[in-house]
Write a protein that binds this DNA or RNA. Structure first.
Lengths: 210, 210
DNA sequence: TTCATTATGTATCGAGTGGTATAAAACTCG
DNA sequence: CGAGTTTTATACCACTCGATACATAATGAA
């Protein structure tokens, strides 16, 4: 499971030396994601994490750094896993489809029975103490980045005549992100998939006809 | 500042005995609210609270019980203070005005420069560890209660012909709560008042004409 | 085998947590 | 003035937190 630096001479190439890992880092990271998702950064104690990941503390530190670095790796995994629907939706040809896929994707994810409720990017570190200020900024920055990406996508749609001339991409993007984040909160409150889908449908009524 | 039990005989009536309080409990509670609001329940350490409240630990425990009871008292204060716009909006005669006042009230509060960003009821205990499970349920229950109150108000509006016959009060109420909670998240991200007002205006476009 | 290397398991560290014991201080009542 | 009562301030408690030291186990290389 060791990734060889490419281009290394075969003479000095290190194969796997020392005692091999007894766990799968990807699976452990997935389990850590669930803990952070359910309890938040501060609410997730290292004992919670190691228990769920089925490794002990030194293994966690050797493989992932420390709690904060583990959380950042979890955020990456989250963005490329449960949140993948977002980037995928951006590739839809029509703006209306982009928004539909985003809203219904969020409704699906935030109420997936196999996953913790809500959204890690929202509830992972929304309000926390000073010691978690760094990860708080990180999640906020990622949320802001999603909004910017969506805004750019809507600006493109406007140039393409896919949105009416009086439409405002910035405020539409912010509106959609607001609904998304609200759906995350609703998810933690136990909202069902049907309920979230209906919220998405209502939210979609504001969409301008092209 | 002692509340006399009514009907007590004047002979045994206790006036203020013992050393008097050196602080104003209402002001201390207000300061505690700001700390919980900014840092969340778990992120607010007792040392943060006592420093902000300008009292020491035993005084806090004597006056407010413990951390959890203090948080519950803070929630009450929050509901009757910064969140008062919500109950007041429910008294508007027309459903459309109710929703407008709620959305613009939230935009105003979540971006008030004199207050922490966002909404205590959302970020106070959204995702947290097991030890905070009780307060987590409390904030979730209060959010749910607000949604029920709003739904009832819209049901009344429908009976009064203030909403079209095909309108669904339950899903409209859930939609409005979703936007509100999303605006709280946007507030923590530093959204300005103008930006939040625009979100409110966009959200209002879904409103059915009566 | 023997050595070097890496992972594991236990046990522990200092710091910070929520909460409290205790005694001095400040008041009212008699 | 005491006597009784309540608050304040200091110091401390047991516990949990994130993080690590250390010895052992398990592998590849020599």
């Amino acid at each position: 499971m060791v990734y060889l630096p490419i281009g290394m001479k075969s003479e000095t190439a290190l194969t796997q030396r020392g005692r091999p890992r007894a766990f799968d880092p990807a699976a452990a990271l997935e389990r850590a994601m669930h803990v952070f998702w359910a309890k938040g950064y501060e609410g997730a104690a290292l004992s919670d994490l190691t228990r769920a990941m089925r490794i002990n503390r030194p293994s966690l530190y050797a493989a992932f750094g420390n709690k904060e670095q583990l959380f950042r790796k979890v955020l990456d995994r989250y963005a490329s896993g449960p949140l993948a629907y977002f980037d995928k939706a951006m590739e839809a040809p029509k703006a209306r489809d982009v928004i539909e896929q985003i809203l219904f994707g969020a409704a699906k994810m935030a109420s997936d029975p196999r996953l913790p409720a809500g959204c890690l990017m929202v509830q992972g570190a929304l309000a926390c103490g000073d010691s978690a200020g760094s990860v708080q900024k990180e999640t906020a920055a990622r949320r802001a980045a999603s909004e910017i990406a969506l805004r750019r996508r809507l600006q493109r749609a406007k140039r393409e005549g896919d949105l009416p001339r009086n439409a405002d991409p910035a405020e539409l993007a912010r509106y959609v992100m607001t609904v998304l984040q609200g759906m995350a909160v609703q998810g933690t409150n136990g909202a069902t998939r049907v309920q979230l889908r209906r919220v998405a449908q209502v939210a979609l009524r504001v969409w301008p006809k092209p």
